[in-house]
Design a protein around this nucleic acid. Structure first.
Length: 334
DNA sequence: AAACCGATCAACCGCGACAAT
DNA sequence: CATTGTCGCGGTTGATCGGTT
């Protein structure tokens, strides 16, 4: 089926909007509402296509748009929602009052994505970027082919690999060795470890919404779920385990600093860790928070609300012990 | 002072979904 | 059921700005 042109482009203006055009559009919508976007420009006396008008209104002129820097709470919400919704910017924006999908998308691409990469986290899968080192396949072959833990291969690449990675590998191999149910798929392996790294116990006070609000929020967010979530943890998504999936979402260090949830602690845990995903960080709080109550987002989390980008990253990194040093050239492994 | 470069973000483009006919 | 029209989404572009050389 052919797509109809959104408008007759002949003679229509493109590019940046002038204050006069903004005034015309705002004034018209305040008086009449947007109505039909196709006919709006003509009625409002604008030499623009309806699409351009809609975009200008929804992304800039709408009176309820919040301007200024994203707060820690908003940033955390974006990351968590992105980990389950993917690039569903409109669905994410629906959970962030006053923020537009375009603004969130830009902020993700220019800030969050880069910071996650610097931290060694894949912004698509939200997992540690072990894949960059091909360490997953290395470990997989080692694990699957022998009951004896053979570190010779690992040691051979030690000069290239962050010691933290090797220690992680050691931990994972130990867990695998002791636990017959350990996932064979390295990707699932990674994501499950990531979940545990970032999932301190759920706190009961993270629920603020009424059942009705929760139901509405759940519906709003499940509607936006992609069918092909890249994170293997969520590929088995079903309505019945949705809570589980949400509860096990990554947190990237935006957690209460009093909680210890690091690789160090991982080493001391028994294998039950891998089967208690219900005790994840309270993503429920994000999902259940009413749209009109942005300040309630993750109220249980403790934030150091500085406005400094570096401090945010530093705080993030300090909580998530898995960190690729600045000197480590990731691009060499791409 | 000028040139260069990277970061940012407003705006555009193409497409899919869906309603209307 | 097929076609047409509209809307909204996600990806991309390009203008602008500030910092650096």
């Amino acid at each position: 089926m052919g797509r109809a042109p959104c408008c007759d482009k002949n003679g229509l203006k493109k590019g940046p909007w002038t204050p006069e055009e903004d005034d015309k559009l705002s004034h018209y919508i305040q008086l009449h509402g947007p109505g039909n976007w196709r006919t709006l420009p003509k009625n409002a006396g604008l030499q623009r296509c309806g699409k351009s008008c809609r975009l200008r209104w929804t992304n800039y002129l709408r009176p309820d748009i919040k301007r200024g820097r994203f707060s820690f709470e908003e940033e955390e919400t974006i990351i968590q929602l992105h980990s389950i919704l993917g690039n569903k910017w409109s669905a994410i924006a629906a959970r962030l009052p006053g923020r537009t999908d375009n603004e969130i998308k830009n902020y993700w691409n220019t800030h969050i994505r880069k910071r996650l990469l610097r931290m060694g986290i894949d912004p698509v899968t939200h997992s540690p970027r072990l894949d960059l080192l091909d360490i997953s396949s290395l470990l997989s072959s080692s694990v699957c082919s022998s009951s004896q833990l053979n570190f010779s291969n690992l040691l051979g690449i030690q000069t290239l690999v962050n010691p933290e990675l090797l220690r992680l590998a050691s931990t994972l191999l130990s867990l695998k060795h002791e636990n017959p149910h350990f996932p064979q798929n390295p990707q699932i392996w990674n994501s499950q470890v990531q979940n545990q790294i970032n999932t301190p116990p759920l706190q009961s006070n993270q629920f603020h919404a009424t059942p009705t609000q929760e139901a509405a929020a759940m519906q709003a967010n499940t509607e936006g779920l992609p069918s092909n979530l890249t994170n293997p943890s969520y590929q088995n998504f079903t309505p019945s385990n949705f809570d589980e999936s949400l509860a096990s979402l990554p947190n990237y260090g935006f957690i209460n600093p009093s909680e210890t949830s690091t690789f160090q602690s991982l080493e001391n845990q028994n294998n039950d860790l891998y089967y208690n995903n219900n005790q994840g960080f309270g993503f429920d709080s994000v999902i259940s928070t009413p749209i009109s109550s942005p300040t309630q987002l993750n109220s249980s989390s403790t934030f150091i609300n500085t406005g400094n980008e570096d401090e945010r990253e530093s705080y993030c990194s300090s909580m998530l012990k898995f960190e690729i040093p600045e000197s480590f050239n990731i691009s060499e492994f791409m």
